[in-house]
């Protein structure tokens, strides 16, 4: 069972005045956490994301593709990065996410992938 573990930025980036809001200490803690995910066979994928202002929305449902500058939803809180982890059930996923939240010092959302 795979879970998307989203990292929520609720003001840290704005406070840091730069794209990459994680401090050096947070980055180090995230690295340790990532190593552990890999060692335990939980790691599927992970990545940090650029600022929402760097986003472009594409809509090609009509006759012509339309490109729009900026994220599809404007909000103070945004997705700053994510993990995709492998866990047997929600309890396991929540346990990992609890440590992940501590490592990156952010709120985190855990969401299951659809089971195929």
């Amino acid at each position: 069972m795979q879970y998307l573990v989203s990292v929520i930025d609720d003001g840290q980036a704005l406070a840091a005045q730069k794209d990459d809001s994680a401090t050096a200490g947070e980055m180090a803690a995230i690295d340790v956490f990532n190593d552990r995910l890999q060692a335990e066979g939980r790691w599927v994928f992970a990545g940090g994301l650029g600022f929402p202002s760097a986003a472009t929305v594409v809509d090609n449902r009509g006759e012509q593709a339309v490109f729009t500058d900026g994220p599809f939803v404007e909000s103070k809180e945004f997705l700053a990065g994510f993990w995709i982890i492998e866990a047997a059930d929600l309890d396991e996923a929540l346990k990992l996410a609890t440590d992940g939240s501590k490592a990156c010092n952010r709120r985190i959302e855990v969401r299951p992938f659809l089971v195929r």
Partner: peptide
């Protein structure tokens, strides 16, 4: 069902 909340007694530590 979707998030697979387990059906078991939690481990001793939890």
């Amino acid at each position: 069902r979707a998030a697979r909340i387990p059906y078991r007694v939690p481990s001793t530590e939890d």
